[in-house]
Amino acid sequence: MKPVDNYFLNQKEPYQSIMLYVREVILNTLPDVVERYSYNIPFYNIGKKPMLYLNILKGRDYVDVAFVQGVLLEKDFPILKNDNKRKQVRSIQLKSIEDLDHEHFQELLCVAAEQIRQSKKAWFI
């Protein structure tokens, strides 16, 4: 079993179900995305550049779906929040699967992927 699979299977509910659902949407929406396990969390890359990652922040009661270049996306996608005062990363906080607007999330994924493809590097700040 891959480390990323172990990560998901070791999560408590409802986080496990939320993460597995988000993972499925990502993989089905972006066939060229590369799933990898780095820094003890799942990352989703376009080529070698990280686009987003899934995490559960300590002391929080939600899954953090964090977009690496989220600061460039937040104007068009107001669902992205600046949690933890991060300079570049913006995220969607999910407490349940129902919190995710599937259609808008797929649109966000496509726009974020294209942005990463066109950028010289993922981390620019």
Rank of each mutant, 00 (worst) to 15 (best):
F8H: 06
I56M: 10
L9Q: 01
S91E: 14
I56P: 02
D99G: 11
Q88D: 15
E107I: 11
K87M: 12
Q16F: 03
Q88L: 12
A66S: 14
V34E: 04
G70I: 10
A112T: 02
G47R: 04
I97F: 09
Y21A: 13
F105R: 04
V65H: 09
L27R: 12
V71N: 14
Y15C: 00
E35I: 08
N28Y: 08
L54F: 12
R90E: 08
M51Q: 05
R36F: 01
Y39P: 15
R60H: 15
Y39V: 08
F67M: 12
T29K: 11
D64W: 15
F124C: 08
K2F: 10
E103F: 04
D64N: 15
Q69N: 14
V34N: 10
F77D: 01
Y62R: 14
P78G: 06
A113Q: 02
E13D: 12
R90K: 14
L73I: 11
P50M: 03
Y62C: 05
E35G: 07
V63P: 03
V33N: 02
A113R: 05
I92V: 14
R23D: 03
S119L: 05
I56S: 06
N55V: 09
I97Y: 10
N84E: 14
L52F: 06
I125F: 14
L20H: 01
N82E: 15
A122M: 01
E24P: 00
I116A: 01
L73K: 13
I26P: 07
L72P: 01
F43S: 02
I46A: 09
E74P: 07
I79H: 06
P14K: 09
V65T: 08
L27I: 07
P31D: 02
F105N: 03
F77S: 13
C110A: 11
S91F: 06
L72A: 03
Y15T: 10
A112M: 03
F43I: 06
P31M: 07
M1C: 08
Y37R: 04
L73G: 01
D61W: 00
E13C: 02
V34L: 06
E98A: 07
D99M: 10
G47S: 12
E107Y: 02
N6C: 03
E24N: 13
F77E: 09
V89M: 14
